[in-house]
Every structure is written in C-alpha cells, then in structure tokens.
C-alpha cells in the first residue's frame, strides 16, 4: 500500500430529491509517473492510482481511468443527481493492488 494515502471528500449533508450536487474529491498519493529517475539515474517505476469509481446506492456516477499525467494528490470534481437518500461510495484503485475507499451519506429533504 502506498504510504499515507488519505481521501478527502466533500458531499453536502442533504439535498432535495432529484437535485444535482457537485462533489469534490482529493486523495493524497504521490502518483509516481514512471518518468522520474533516482539519484543513480535509474528510472523510478510507475506507481499510480489508475482508477476512481463513484457509485450512489449501487448506481454509477463516474468511472475515471487515470494515467500518469494526473497530478500528485489526484483531484476530481463532478456532479451527481441525488434521486433519494443514500450513500456515495468512492473507490480508488492503486497500481500496487491497494484499494482505498470512502463513503459519505446524504439525506433527502
């Protein structure tokens, strides 16, 4: 598991049924591109988060494929419709096999 990987997600606490909300997500991750070389001149192997999936109550909102050109500490902002109360599930997949998850509940008023 890459060291010190921590997600940070902004989801409003509540919305009206059917409303569109904006979600912001950050995760700390070095996103080692594979282009850098170490002090001896050897290439540092690629090690990035390669996929980010957001589902709400089991339905998909967005599914992102990441390449090494995504900056360190990947940031994504996107919209989702909120049909009913429920839970957003955020999943990041690492090249090294680790999976990072975060969930946020939202009420419907």
């Amino acid at each position: 598991m890459a060291k010190g990987v921590k997600p940070r997600v902004k989801v409003p606490k509540s919305a009206s049924a059917g409303e569109t909300i904006t979600i912001k997500t950050l995760i700390s991750h070095p996103m080692e591109s594979g282009q850098r070389k170490d002090k001896e001149g050897n290439p540092i192997p690629r090690s990035i988060i390669n996929r980010f999936v957001v589902d709400f109550n089991g339905q998909n909102v967005i599914d992102v494929t990441l390449e090494p050109a995504i900056s360190t500490n990947p940031y994504f902002q996107f919209d989702s419709v909120v049909p009913e109360a429920g839970e957003f599930k955020f999943t990041w997949y690492d090249d090294d096999g680790s999976v990072y998850e975060e969930t946020k509940s939202i009420d419907v008023s």
């Binding site: 569109t20 599914d63 995504i70 902002q77 989702s80």
Partner: peptide, 20 residues
C-alpha cells in the same frame, strides 16, 4: 491523461481535475 466515463446518475457529463 484520463478517461471520464459517465454513469446513469451523472446529470451533466463534466469533470475537473489537475494534470501534469
């Protein structure tokens, strides 16, 4: 750089990110 696949709950098909 990236591919954004929009799911059924995505109302607006937009995304922001930061790239190298």
């Amino acid at each position: 750089v990236a591919t954004f696949n929009f799911g059924p709950l995505n109302p607006s098909q937009n995304a922001s990110t930061r790239i190298r």
